[in-house]
């Protein structure tokens, strides 16, 4: 009887663990966090993590955010810029974060 229970349980827990991982990684993409959408905070995080003097280019953002299209990235960047989280540097394609000091 014990054997039957464990063989029944193993695949179940395996499945739910797998699902949990996927959800945790891509995570709640429509839920806004601290006033930002998931897209916006992804873009902000990438810009924060870049320590190049001229900031991050839109092309670099695109190459790292496979789930976002260029118009979506530009929208997020414009929003973050209007909120003051980021600002453009050498040109309108390069951005740095204000709170990365």
């Amino acid at each position: 009887r014990k054997n039957l229970m464990s063989t029944l349980r193993a695949p179940q827990s395996f499945h739910s663990a797998g699902l949990g991982d996927v959800r945790g990684y891509g995570g709640g993409s429509s839920l806004p966090m601290n006033g930002l959408t998931a897209h916006q905070s992804q873009v902000l995080n990438l810009i924060k993590n870049c320590h190049m003097p001229e900031g991050v280019s839109l092309q670099e953002l695109k190459s790292q955010l496979h789930n976002m299209s260029m118009p979506t990235i530009k929208q997020a960047v414009e929003f973050l810029s209007s909120e003051g989280h980021i600002y453009s540097t050498v040109d309108d394609d390069h951005y740095k974060s204000t709170d990365a000091e």
Binding site: Y87, T89, V90
Partner: peptide, 20 residues
């Protein structure tokens, strides 16, 4: 560059206004 510094200051001001 001067323009970058100004952009940054403007952004910091916007951020400060948001956080009021």
């Amino acid at each position: 560059q001067e323009r970058i510094r100004q952009n940054k200051e403007a952004a910091l001001r916007r951020l400060a206004e948001r956080n009021v």
